[in-house]
Structure formats: structure tokens, C-alpha cells
Write a protein that binds this DNA or RNA. Structure first.
Lengths: 375, 375
DNA sequence: GTGGATTTGTTTATTGGTTGAATTATTTGA
DNA sequence: TCAAATAATTCAACCAATAAACAAATCCAC
């Protein structure tokens, strides 16, 4: 099997990139194993030599990304193996969330375990962004200190906001918070205990989708739909979040469902949001499922997405919504006869976005362990 | 800038992969240059050393992928450079197309130039798949022989069909041709002059989208919509065709536009096809543009696609359709205020799919020149 | 013209990383 | 107690990129 690399990449590749790639390969292999594989098992799975795997594993153990543990029970003769597992004492991700009525912070270690979780209920609408983010920063600092007392090293932070976020972390607009052009990384970084952390910001639905990705396990391609005041969607294609060219993807709330229907605050008519948004859900639920089904059919027809995850306010209503949605999917998806679309409720509940945020941090470490090792 | 590789790849990387990657990098760099860069210029652009570039270029020249040419006019002192250009005498791609009323074959060289083009008008509907593909195979053989007499080496063939194609090249169903489960690669390969060629098959709209990609130049992300009897779409994200998990993406013709509208042959109601398909175009054109605008708005809201290319029967009608489509896009796309969607007619005309097919062959060589060199 | 400056391209020693074979370590089973 | 088996390490060889020195070919200034 020829080893392939990215093709149209514009960066040159040196030997050090080979090591970087293979370090990630080994780390992934251990992380995706259900048992605790030996170096030899990793070599067999990856196709690398045992010698190479040994050298790579030594680096990863020295850097606190892997640990040697009890091996799985023996099967025959031979020198006993040393089991490998992702370290629970190495780098960790700080996940943050700010929403209309609460602030939350959590720390997730490399194994995906939530090690700290702090939440504070408070109405953020009257507060100005600086105040709100300072409060969140203090919460985050507490989570960080508690985690580091536990032996973890927080590698970075990620913040989930209900709004449109630019590439540089600037929150362009978050209607429900009343924010506009807020430099969230800078305001959070003003809290002294966070000053040294790299901080990224992303949309709530995007991060919630990533949070579900980790839990979902099997399916690397799905659409996550989050019913809130508005309706957001995070599209995960092949394990990667698809953000769109300018980061404006996922606006399923403004997909037209009834061309001459109810006027929407966006200026158009018949947007999904008017039939399946939280206000509409309170009123005439009957239309919600059908409207969702119509919009989701469009997604599946266009993208051949095999799985749809319903989150936010939709998760608790899943049983109620399901029949209506599936009816429309069965009718309107061209290929539904060949393979029906799988509909699932979100599993993480209100923490999905925060978990997804923490996950982006540890995912960065897992995808490029070499960068962590040479820090 | 740290050199990054694909992260969650499951293949190990050796030194030979480094060379493979850098060969592709050099070839791409020369291909994307408007002038005829020297080895030193390529080194400066890529970040590789001049020594390394020299070695890589030598391999590419020896393998017939690059040629040394007159350099661009001198600018100052120093030893004169040797210009580099993609070879027009090396590997080439054979592009094939079969449609209701014609067969066509072309050969495109590595520079993207069409070197041979053969077409034959004939009604394929009465013919059985074997007959039709044998006729096409003979046409292809003529194109291949003519190209090889010209010094080219045909590296492979790709066939565009108006239907659903499985991963292995099996045509599942092509309604307008009356085909079902046709093993096109095997039938084409039965023509003796093609027996040694690797043959791939893909959907017409997908390949037409790729054809437009090469011509489009600037935009690596766009939606190509082709109005035929049905309506197909090819989605190009970041320079790559997005096929969907099972290869069923792009079914924009069955996106719901009017939920309680006209019944469609697919069993649903209000599909785009019923308002903007070729039959509908003949009748009540007024609705076509609005219906297209509604469906395309959904695409843009979901995927943040900045450019839409109208092809097939839509291309000649572009001026007529444009205002109606743009009106709906402006109204229904949430972000249209920040950046309007660019609407463009296709430029390749009826040859788009065939050109795109040939392009997939030469793209494979360009993306992995090492594989070609060690053939 | 003649020599220095300048740029291109090649040569050579070095470095980093994987491989493969041999070696050491530690167990099971006869 | 010894042979077979499996795990992990050591070491020489190889491959590819780098850096620095060198050769080649031009321009420009005097």
C-alpha cells in the first residue's frame, strides 16, 4: 500500500514532518483501540516497524501523551507485552460556554473524560460583554487551577458563543446576547490566570456538532441540528467540521420551507425558523416536524448525509418530532428507498457545545502531537 | 511555517512519501505559474532548497512531466535561468461521454489542452448498452491512436454518464439511456485498443463541475447546476468534488420548492425539477428562475457557497434566468447583505463533462507524479 | 575588454528518520 | 530444564532533505 500524503498542499515536507505524521498515527491508533495495545500491536496495525513504533512511543510517553499500563490478559507463550493507553495526566482542553442564562467551563483530558465542570446561572442579557466575559474568565480560571492541581496541563481554551464568529475569534454578532463585534479572546485573556492560554472562539452549533462527533463514534458524517431561539446546524463531513468559505455555513434556520409563508425577521418568507424555532414550537407544534422534514430532505438530497442528530430543544422533543420528520424524509429524499436516513437525538444535552469546545483543544494536540512535544 | 501532513490518516509515512509529496508540490508549482519559472524560482516559492528542487525537477523532466523551455526575459545580472513548463508530450487523459443523442471522446494533455476530439451523433436510446459502449470504445480508440501518434501517452480513461454510478464504476441507473446495472468499464475495456487502460466512470454533473473547476480558475468552492431533463448538481468544496458518503450527493432536482406543489415522478411533491427541468422550461418559464432561486438559497444558507455556475440547458438561458434567481437569493440568503452570491454561466458548453472526465485522469497524474514515474 | 558582482544550478558532507536483521528479555509448555 | 514464542531494543544501512561550498554564465562598471 503506497503511503499517500496531502496532494495540493503548498507546504514542503521534510523528514521531521514524517515523524510528526507518524507520531499522530501512533497516538490515534492507541486512542482508537478498545484494548490497551502493545508496541508490537500498534506496529501491526499501523504498518510501521516495531523499532519505529518503539521510538515514537518513547517520545509520546516522555511527553506525557501516552502511559504504560497493565496489558490485556495474556494469550500464549512469549514475553509479556506492555499495554499502552492515552494518558489522563497530560494535556487537557478548557471548554467554555456563554449563553443567555448561564456561563460554564469544563476541563477535558486527552482520554475525553470531563475532569472539571463549573457552571453559573446568570442572566447575561443586561451585562455588557466585558463584564460577562470576565465572569466567565474567573470561572475558567477556577476550572484550570483545579485541573492543574490534579496533574493536568491545560493546553488551550475554546469558547462557544451563540452567534457568528470570524476567523480571528471576533464575535461579529450574537443577537440573543446583544453582542456586536466583541473581541472575546482579548477580553477572556485579560483574566490573569488565562493570559498565557491560546483561546479560540466558535459558533455554538458548530462546537456542539463536534461534541456529538466524539460521542457518536461510528459516523464521521452527519448533520447536527440545534433548536434554540434560532435554529443552527453543524455539518460534519468525514470527521471534519465544514465551516464554509467564510464560516457562514449551517444557517438551516433560514432555509425556505414555504415560499409564501410567514414573514421572518431576516426579511424573507417561510424560513424554517418560523415553523420550528422555539417560539413556533410553543405554539403550533404540528408544523414543526413537517417543516424540519422538508428542510432536512433538502440537506440529504444535496449532500447525501446518512445521519441527522437533533439537539438543543429538539432533543427532549425527539419522540414527538420523529414520526413527522421521518414521513417527510421518506417522501422527499430521492434515495430514501435505498437507505433510509438515520435520525437520532443528541446525547450530550446542554453541555454539548462546551464539550465540543474542549474537544477542539485536545483534538489539536492529538492531531499534531509533535507540536505539543516540542513546546 | 511548520510543514503539516494529513492528520487522521491511517497510512504510515516513509521517506519515499516525502519525495512523492515534494514531486507533486514542484509539479503543481510549475503548473500554477503563469510564467515559466526556473528551478531557483520554484525553490523560492515552495520553500524547498535549490538542491532539492533540482533533483526533483530532474526526475520530472526525465519522466516526461516537465520540459525545459526558454526562460522569461532576463531582468538583471547572473547566470541565465532555464525555464520550466508542464510537458505537452507526456501523459494525457482520455475523456469519454455518452448521452441520449451523442457519443464523444477527447484527449487532454497535462497542460490542459484538448489535443483530440471526436464526436458522433446517434440516438442511443434504442441501442443496448453493450452496442453503445462498443461504438464509444471505437471512437475512443481512434482518439487514443491519434494522440499517441502525436507523442502522447494516454494514462487512463474516464467516462461521463447521465446517471447514478457506484464506486466500482457500475452504472446503477441511467434513466434517459434506459440503462440499469451496466458494467461500463468492462464493456469499454472489451475494445482491444482500450484493454490496458484503467477506466473510471462518474456522473455527468459531477464531471462537468470538475471541468468548470479547471476553467474557473479562481474559485475552488462552487456549485455547478446542470439543467437537463432532470437537474443535477456537482458540489466542489475547496477544489475537491464532494460526492457524499455513498456517492448520492447533488440531487438538487428533488429539493422541495413548493411543499404542496406539482407531483414529481419521484413520488414527492413540489420538487425543483417540476419547475425548472427541461419540460417545465418549455412551458411556463416564469417559475423556473424563482424555483431555482429558492433551491439555490437553501444551498447557500447551508454551505456558504460563494459561487454558483449554471450549465447544461441553463447556460444559454442565463441572461433570462439571472434576474429571477438573484432576486430570490438576495431575499432568502441570510448573508446576502454581507457578500452577494456570484452567479455565472458555464463556459465549456456541452463538452464540460467530457473535459472534466479527461481532467480527472491528468489530475491523478499531477497529484501523484511519483506513481506515474515508477510505472 | 577585463574583473567584480550576481544569480543559477550542482556537488558534497551532514542530519534526521525509517527499515531490517540481529539481539536481548521474559514468558509458556513439554 | 530447555525449546519455542513473543516483546522490545540495538545497530548498521539507506533514503531524502539541508546547508554550504563550488562551478557556470551572465551583467555592469571602469
Amino acid at each position: 500500500m503506497p503511503a499517500r500524503l496531502t496532494s495540493p498542499s503548498s507546504a514542503p515536507v521534510r523528514q521531521s514532518s514524517v515523524r510528526a505524521h507518524n507520531l499522530a498515527l501512533v497516538l490515534h491508533t492507541v486512542a482508537n483501540s478498545t484494548d490497551r495495545p502493545s508496541r508490537a500491536a500498534v506496529a501491526a496495525i499501523t504498518g510501521l516497524t516495531r523499532a519505529t513504533v518503539s521510538a515514537l512511543v518513547d517520545d509520546l510517553v516522555a511527553g506525557g501523551l501516552l502511559t504504560e499500563v497493565e496489558p490485556p490478559p495474556r494469550t500464549g507463550a512469549g514475553r509479556p507485552a506492555v499495554g499502552l493507553a492515552v494518558s489522563a495526566a497530560g494535556p487537557a482542553g478548557l471548554g467554555l460556554e456563554i449563553n443567555v442564562d448561564y456561563l460554564a467551563a469544563c476541563v477535558v483530558d486527552l482520554t475525553g473524560t470531563v475532569r472539571q465542570r463549573f457552571a453559573e446561572h446568570a442572566d447575561q442579557r443586561p451585562a455588557d460583554p466585558g463584564q460577562a466575559l470576565t465572569m466567565l474568565g474567573r470561572l475558567a480560571a477556577r476550572a484550570r487551577l483545579a485541573a492543574e492541581a490534579d496533574g493536568l496541563i491545560v493546553a488551550g481554551a475554546a469558547l462557544a458563543v451563540p452567534g457568528l464568529v470570524a476567523d480571528d475569534g471576533l464575535v461579529r454578532v450574537a443577537p440573543n446576547l446583544g453582542w456586536q463585534d466583541v473581541d472575546a479572546p482579548a477580553l477572556l485573556g485579560a483574566v490573569p490566570e488565562l493570559a498565557d492560554l491560546p483561546i479560540t472562539v466558535d459558533n455554538e452549533a458548530n462546537l456542539a456538532a463536534l461534541g456529538e462527533l466524539r460521542v457518536t463514534g461510528g459516523d464521521p458524517t452527519f448533520l447536527y441540528v440545534s433548536g434554540e431561539v434560532g435554529i443552527g446546524a453543524g455539518l460534519v463531513l468525514g470527521g471534519e467540521l465544514y465551516r464554509g468559505v467564510r464560516g457562514w455555513s449551517g444557517e438551516i434556520g433560514h432555509v425556505t420551507v414555504f415560499p409564501d409563508g410567514r414573514p421572518c425577521r431576516c426579511g424573507a418568507r417561510g424560513c424554517l425558523e418560523q415553523y420550528a424555532g422555539q417560539e413556533a414550537l410553543a405554539g403550533d407544534e404540528p408544523l414543526a416536524a413537517a417543516a424540519l422534514g422538508i428542510a432536512l430532505s433538502a440537506v440529504v438530497n444535496l449532500l447525501d448525509v446518512p445521519v441527522i442528530v437533533l439537539g438543543g430543544a429538539y432533543a427532549p422533543l425527539f419522540a414527538t418530532l420523529r414520526p413527522g420528520i421521518e414521513e417527510e424524509l421518506a417522501r422527499r429524499v430521492l434515495t430514501s428507498g435505498m437507505a433510509p436516513v438515520v435520525l437520532r437525538p443528541a446525547t450530550l444535552g446542554p453541555d454539548a457545545a462546551m464539550r465540543g469546545a474542549a474537544d477542539t483543544v485536545i483534538r489539536a494536540v492529538r492531531d499534531d502531537p509533535a507540536a505539543w512535544l516540542r513546546r
